[in-house]
Nucleic acid binder design. Structure first.
Length: 303
RNA sequence: GCACGGGUGGCAGAGCGGUCAAUUGCAAUGGACUGUAAAUCCAUCGACCUAUGGUCUACGAAGGUUCAAAUCCUUCCCCGUGCA
């Protein structure tokens, strides 16, 4: 049985300093970086997503950045497909793939080889279901696949988006296939390195980074994106800086509120990221000042 | 000084005699997540308890009316606006 290739994963909440660490490790261990960020895949979303600059890359190749136009929809499936291709390519050159990012869902799907039902979005059906209440959606799903509905937890069964997706799959397949973790095909041997700092410090970092982004022209970036055709609606979907600055540019929000609101929204996001990561016991957690410990952990892992 | 309007839980802001520990939004805290994931959604949110119920403390302060007050009356304190 061939051994699985080793792969390094750097994850953690937004603004902890993952990118820097990834570059340093890449330099030290002959690696290349594969981003795992659901917003950095889009071209033109630079300042607002905190995308690494060419200079900051220090010569290390980065993959999964700028792979789609922001007007297009991108999904986990797209991500996994393309990221796998990048990883194969990196491995073929005998380099270490380093996954770096904060989108837990993408990382999990990629590393654990989650199998998704091969059912794409059904725009007509989505349109038809769009205005329906949670109650209505639930009863539609109940007719199609009662088992699925009763297996959904309190939160999902009240979540229109999840309900619609289930209906979408059930409409195509007759029912929604249950999750079968044992069917997952993990292609790699992963080392998960989690980077985090204490809450108050993370809040400070988020604020400082936000102010800096505004300073270097984030509002301009967003203005230009709209000028070149990216709709306000799409920006709203993109979330955080794109959502709230778009609202500001549409005069739905005061300048004075923007920092305050965005700061707490980004903080909420960081917390959501952490509730995702907390569940994964494979992650070894470090603070950014534990560089030496991290290096040692990677060394051990690679030998 | 006079005349109005107002003082409600961390904030904003409903309620205007009983069903009010007090609608709602925000914040806070915890959580969910298998093709939108920076998205979307859920729960808790005065204190204490022998906890699908009970006790206590709460709606600027102090009194009063009432079986019953955040809700009515009186006085006081504070804030906003108008007239002096």
């Amino acid at each position: 049985m061939p051994t699985k290739p080793k792969i390094l994963i750097i994850l953690g909440p937004t603004a902890v300093g993952k990118s820097d660490l990834a570059v340093e490790l890449a330099l030290e261990f002959n690696g290349e970086i594969v981003s795992a960020d659901s917003r950095q895949v889009y071209t033109g979303l630079n300042i607002g997503t905190g995308k690494i600059t060419t200079e900051e890359m220090r010569g290390i190749p980065h993959h999964m950045l700028d792979v789609v136009d922001p007007s297009q929809r991108f999904s986990v499936i797209d991500y996994v497909k393309q990221a796998e291709r990048a990883i194969t390519d990196i491995l073929s050159r005998n380099k270490l793939p380093i996954i770096c990012g904060g989108t837990g869902f993408y990382i999990q799907a990629l590393i654990d080889g989650t199998l998704f039902p091969d059912i794409g979005p059904n725009p007509e059906l989505q349109k038809e279901l769009a205005g329906k209440s949670v109650i209505e959606l639930a009863s539609i799903l109940k007719k199609l696949d009662p088992a699925k509905l009763s297996s959904m937890n309190e939160s999902d069964s009240k979540n229109p988006r999840r309900l619609i997706r289930a209906i979408e799959i059930a409409t195509a397949l007759g029912s929604v296939p249950p999750h079968t973790p044992d069917k997952h095909v993990s292609l790699y041997e992963p080392l998960f390195i989690g980077l985090n700092v204490e809450a108050e410090l993370l809040k400070e970092r988020i604020r400082a980074r936000l102010l800096k982004r505004i300073d270097v022209g984030m509002v301009e970036e967003i203005k230009n994106l709209h000028a070149t055709g990216l709709s306000w609606e799409r920006m709203d979907e993109l979330g955080l800086e794109y959502r709230y600055i778009a609202r500001f540019l549409q005069n739905q929000m005061n300048k004075g509120d923007i920092i305050r609101v965005l700061h707490t929204q980004i903080w909420h996001y960081a917390k959501r990221q952490m509730t995702w990561f907390k569940k994964d016991t494979r992650i070894k957690w470090f603070t950014p000042d534990q560089k030496q410990d991290i290096t040692n952990a990677v060394k051990t892992f690679l030998t």
